[in-house]
C-alpha cells in the first residue's frame, strides 16, 4: 500500500496520482514494491545485482513504462537497470526518484541506467529528482545514464532536479550511430549549501548523427554547480550545446565545455552564459504590478520550465 508520503513523492517525480496503466515498476526503500508488465513490455528482476531489465519488443508503439524510485528512510540504495528498446518502437519511459528523509542518516540512491536503443527506435526518457523531509540526514542522488543509439534512433532526455537534493553527481554518456538523433533538456535548481555536478559526454560516431543539449540552471544562496559538457564529433555530424545559468546570492557556477572534432565535416557549437536575472525583466514585471520577489519567482519558474 502506498502511504501519503509515497503518493506525494510519486506525484512530484512522475505526475502520478495513482498507479498508472501499462508497464510499471515501483522500487521503495531498496526493494521492489509493485510491478505490471504488458504483452509488449517485460520487466525482469536482475539475478546478479539489484535492478531490473526492461525489455520492449520491436515495433511497440505509443506505450509507456513508469519506473519510479522512492526512498522514505535513511538508507543507501544502489540499482542497475537495463533497457532494451526494440527496433522501430516508440515509447515513453518515466523514471525519477523522490527522497523523503526524516532521519538524521544519509538517504542515497545511485541509479545506473543503461539503454540500448535499437535501429529506428524512438525513446523519450523523463527523469525528475525531488527531495523533502525534516530530518538532518543528507539527501543524495547519483544517477549514471549510458545510452547506445543505433542507426536512425531518436532519443529525447528530459532531466530535472527541482528541489531538495543536497548532493548530486550526474553522469550521462551517449553514443550516437548513423543518423541517430539526441535531444537533451536539463533543468536544475540548487539552493542553501547544495552541490550539483553534471558530466555529459556525447560521442557522435556515425554519419549524420546529431545532438542538441539545452541546459538551464539556477544557483541560489551558497550552492555550487559544476558542469562538464563534451561533444566529440567522429564523423560528419552536428552538435549544439546551449547552457544558461542564473546565478544569485553567494552561489558558484562553473560551466566547462569541450567540443572536439575528429572529422572535418563535424559541425559543433557551444554556447554558455552565466549571469544574474536581467534587470530589464524584473523592472518590466514590477511595472505590471508585481513585487520584486514575485517578479523574481516568475522569471525563475519560467526559466526552469
Amino acid at each position: 500500500m502506498l502511504t501519503a508520503i509515497d503518493k506525494k513523492l510519486l506525484f512530484e517525480i512522475a505526475d502520478l496520482n495513482e498507479i498508472p496503466q501499462g508497464a510499471f515498476n515501483l522500487r521503495k526503500n531498496g526493494e521492489g514494491s509493485g510491478r505490471h508488465t504488458t504483452s509488449n513490455i517485460d520487466i525482469i528482476t536482475k539475478k546478479d545485482k539489484p535492478g531490473i531489465d526492461v525489455i520492449i519488443k520491436a515495433g511497440t508503439k505509443g506505450e509507456s513504462v513508469y519506473i519510479p524510485v522512492i526512498v522514505s528512510e535513511g538508507i543507501e540504495d544502489i540499482v542497475y537497470n537495463t533497457f532494451e528498446i526494440g527496433e522501430n518502437s516508440d515509447v515513453l519511459i518515466v523514471a525519477g526518484c523522490g527522497i523523503h528523509n526524516s532521519s538524521d542518516k544519509k538517504a542515497q540512491h545511485d541509479g545506473i541506467h543503461e539503454f540500448f536503443v535499437r535501429k529506428g527506435a524512438k525513446m523519450k526518457y523523463i527523469e525528475k529528482h525531488y527531495g523533502e523531509g525534516e530530518g538532518s540526514g543528507e539527501r543524495v542522488l547519483n544517477p549514471k545514464t549510458i545510452i547506445e543509439v543505433e542507426e536512425n534512433g531518436v532519443v529525447e532526455l528530459e532531466m530535472a532536479q527541482i528541489r531538495g537534493i543536497d548532493n548530486t553527481i550526474r553522469d550521462t554518456e551517449v553514443n550516437l550511430h548513423k543518423n541517430a538523433q539526441l535531444i537533451v533538456v536539463e533543468r536544475l535548481l540548487t539552493y542553501l549549501d547544495q552541490t550539483a555536478e553534471s558530466n555529459t559526454t556525447v560521442n557522435l560516431l556515425g554519419e549524420d548523427a546529431s545532438a542538441q543539449i539545452i541546459s538551464r540552471t539556477v544557483a541560489q544562496n551558497e550552492s555550487k554547480q559544476v558542469f562538464h559538457f563534451r561533444l566529440l564529433g567522429h564523423a560528419k555530424c552536428r552538435g549544439h550545446i546551449q547552457c544558461d545559468s542564473i546565478i544569485m546570492d553567494k552561489a558558484q557556477v562553473s560551466s566547462i565545455p569541450e567540443i572536439s572534432a575528429f572529422n572535418s565535416d563535424a559541425q559543433l557549437i557551444h554556447e554558455a552564459a552565466i549571469g544574474k536575472i536581467e534587470s530589464e525583466q524584473l523592472t518590466k514585471l514590477m511595472s505590471l504590478g508585481m513585487t520584486e520577489t514575485e517578479a523574481e519567482e516568475t522569471i525563475l519558474k519560467g526559466f526552469l520550465k
Binding site: 536581467e278 525583466q281 523592472t283 526559466f303
Partner: peptide, 23 residues
C-alpha cells in the same frame, strides 16, 4: 516603488522591451 505606482494606475511601455526565456 515601481509596483506601488503600477498598482495606483501608472503603466509604461518600454522603448526597448525585455524578452523572457520561458514566459
Amino acid at each position: 516603488t515601481i509596483y506601488e505606482r503600477a498598482r495606483m494606475g501608472i503603466g509604461y511601455a518600454f522603448q526597448q522591451p525585455a524578452r523572457f526565456k520561458g514566459i
